[in-house]
Design a protein around this nucleic acid. Structure first.
Lengths: 191, 191, 191, 191
DNA sequence: CATGAATGAGACTTCATTCAT
DNA sequence: TATGAATGAAGTCTCATTCAT
């Protein structure tokens, strides 16, 4: 088992999946880009599905690294900003992976892993919101709804920026956070 | 050409596409559900792609009917609510179509019509925001970003509620609007 | 049974078969050109094959009318010329039928009738040649070979003239007959 | 890519096309005769059309090899004979290919290559005839007509001999050449 | 007599996977 | 470990023919 070959295949697969989508990405495309023979592919992966899941897994692992739960004993807004910017920078640096993750095919059983990540993310956001509420910083609201709103907003924003050139990420992030917070906090100027 | 048969096929196709997704939806499934012969399908549609586009077109046409541009000479918040609720009620009544539209496959060329609709929607929202700004109601912000945020939020919320039973839609909508507005308006209590 | 409808179908079929060839000529084309319904077609013909045979039969019947066996008690060369010219004029007037007959598909069982006609024709030519030999006018030769040569030449010539505009038929025919009778070389013994 | 398999497929295709004709020759027949799987066929050929063209191309290439332009500085009649006999022997040895070439379907776009070959052939014959005329050997005649006559005769003769057993080819060829050169009548002026 | 919607066998083609070398 | 020729299940689409009205 040559690790190089396996990595090469994963890299090629990532490219191909992001360019063509799962269904139009053929084993031929992947092995051609990797420059290996058809049989070699099946030495490293059981199936097309397996390599696809491997590609997804890596992206999700990366994202889990980037997003840190909020620690209320430090500057909260800063941590929120840091998480958001981190995700956006990752997306910009890994457009291939980002496309695969963001444009996941709901009917493709392999991409359940993405849903689980999103669910976790929503849970994390809800927890942060709840903390904010119990700390008296945020209004009493349906945290699930707002977690969904935050995730949905992020998805849409990221879709936009990975298709565009030249985005002022830090400014964008601040604007977003301000949008969210000014809607959520009890009284202006208090945070 | 029997209109009944065509409608039957479209209805079956809608169901099948929403249950299996474009790629795993086979003509066999559609005709089996419709209870017609293979040849009959091709009497009404040139290809799987054509019936898929027809299904999409109908959904988009419906949605365009539902969403009305904001008229600033009437109660704005009411109109926003009406649009949002309209879309959500439609989604709840047409879960099949909603799934197909929301979970569109980015790499499927047939679903460009959905993108165009979303782009239009974003444009409409931006226009409303700009009006609000020029009327002095809303803060001066990047309207495109917030239009994306609104659309993204709606997508995520709708995904959630069509998978859940029993959602208090009107309450949900009010909460959303309040979330958005309290973040956007210049000063509290002014609207 | 309306004779008009039947004739209309045959006429349309002739056109379609000659334009598209047997395999690409579809019942749809024929009925569309005739302006009748699909079911009507099967009121008059059992199958595509049957109408094809009917079209062929008519052409062959026409040709049998035109070609007369040589009567040695009259001017032979004149009768030969008359037959040849007759066939060529018929071909020019009925390009559709001529194409179908000339370009028959060897593997299409329906067109056996054409072969039978050609065989008859070859037989007639052989008889004429034999008479010419026994009358001491023609050289003692393999009559079958020359009958084939004459038929093959006619086929090729007719193919040519139905694709071209403006052919001087009578001149062409005379040239052919002279060629068959006297050959290409200027003076005997010279080559 | 295994050359053997490709050749096997071509050989099988040739057989099948000649036995059934283009339209009734199915991929199933070809792969069954070759003893390979369905997918294997498409490893070597894009489509039924492609293998058909390949089969034709080979036949035409062979024929172009066999037929040599007449060189007037050598014995002309001998060269003509040599060409004719060459073609006939080829036809006898390759009855499959010959059937496909001779009985080409006018409406089948794939077989244009055959027409081009026949056109070339007619051109070559015309050139030879023109040389003969300018050398004072042949009568001044419409060379195109006679080229057509020669080609048509050859076609018809070959059709006959590939269906028959036991033909005395060299005798037949000599008879043909004599016919073309000297015609049918015993002595000039007598008719 | 006429209609035309419906049928379904069967053609072509694709592509993930296997396996002998 | 690597290769790449071979596989075959399964999908889309066609079109002559049928039959209820």
């Amino acid at each position: 088992m040559s690790v190089q070959t396996k990595e090469l295949l994963i890299k090629s697969a990532r490219k191909v999946f992001s360019e063509k989508g799962y269904h139009d990405a053929h084993i031929s495309h992947i092995i051609e880009k990797a420059g290996v023979a058809r049989g070699t592919f099946y030495l490293y992966f059981e199936s097309k599905d397996e390599i696809f899941r491997e590609v997804l897994k890596r992206a999700i692992d990366d994202l889990r690294e980037i997003i840190k739960p909020i620690d209320t004993s430090f500057d909260i807004q800063q941590q929120v900003l840091s998480n958001i910017c981190g995700v956006i920078y990752y997306a910009l640096k890994n457009k291939d992976l980002t496309k695969i993750v963001l444009y996941r095919d709901r009917w493709n059983k392999n991409s359940r892993i993405i849903d689980e990540f999103i669910q976790d993310l929503i849970g994390m956001i809800e927890n942060s919101l709840k903390k904010g509420i119990s700390m008296g910083i945020l209004k009493l609201h349906n945290t699930h709804t707002f977690a969904l709103a935050i995730v949905g907003t992020m998805k849409e924003i990221i879709k936009e920026i990975i298709e565009k050139e030249q985005v002022d990420v830090s400014n964008l992030c601040q604007e977003l956070v301000e949008f969210w917070l000014k809607g959520l906090i009890k009284e202006e100027g208090k945070l």
